[in-house]
């Protein structure tokens, strides 16, 4: 009981401190945890498995197959609130790495050109959830 009281007191203290710091975000941006998000997660897990098999082949193979490239992709099509999710998904799949992101472009470093091309075709940009609300 005492421990529970301590827990409640510390939560209240943190909330009060955050309120005092005036640091609460007025603009709530949350992604809905609905069916399309779950479907996207499943698709992303499949992509992670596929691309890590590619990187594994590159690691155990010869060094000549390694052609690291760097490129810029437009990010206009992706709605604003799921851009962080998009960049995080790019970095999560092995073989592509998001270096920089601003309002128009993401800079991407890729281990071979095929993975950069498949990103350029916009497979992942089409599948990122969040556009169905129409607010974006």
């Amino acid at each position: 009981m005492l421990l529970l009281a301590f827990g409640i007191i510390s939560v209240a203290l943190v909330l009060w401190l955050l309120h005092r710091m005036n640091n609460t975000d007025a603009e709530i941006q949350k992604l809905a945890l609905n069916l399309s998000f779950i479907r996207y997660t499943m698709w992303l897990l499949g992509q992670v498995v596929l691309s890590s098999l590619t990187v594994t082949r590159l690691v155990w193979g010869s060094r000549k197959e390694l052609k690291p490239t760097i490129g810029k992709l437009p990010v206009n099509k992706v709605p604003k609130k799921s851009r962080v999710l998009y960049a995080n998904s790019i970095t999560l799949t092995p073989g592509t790495l998001c270096i920089d992101i601003d309002n128009e472009n993401v800079t991407i470093h890729a281990l071979n050109e095929e993975s950069l091309h498949s990103l350029k075709r916009g497979d992942m940009a089409d599948k990122v959830p969040g556009e169905n609300k129409g607010v974006s």
Binding site: T56, T91, L97, H109, L111
Partner: peptide, 14 residues
């Protein structure tokens, strides 16, 4: 360095 980040990301994700 940048290719090494890819190798480390294999261990981190899959």
């Amino acid at each position: 360095f940048f290719t090494r980040v890819h190798a480390a990301s294999v261990t981190d994700s899959i």
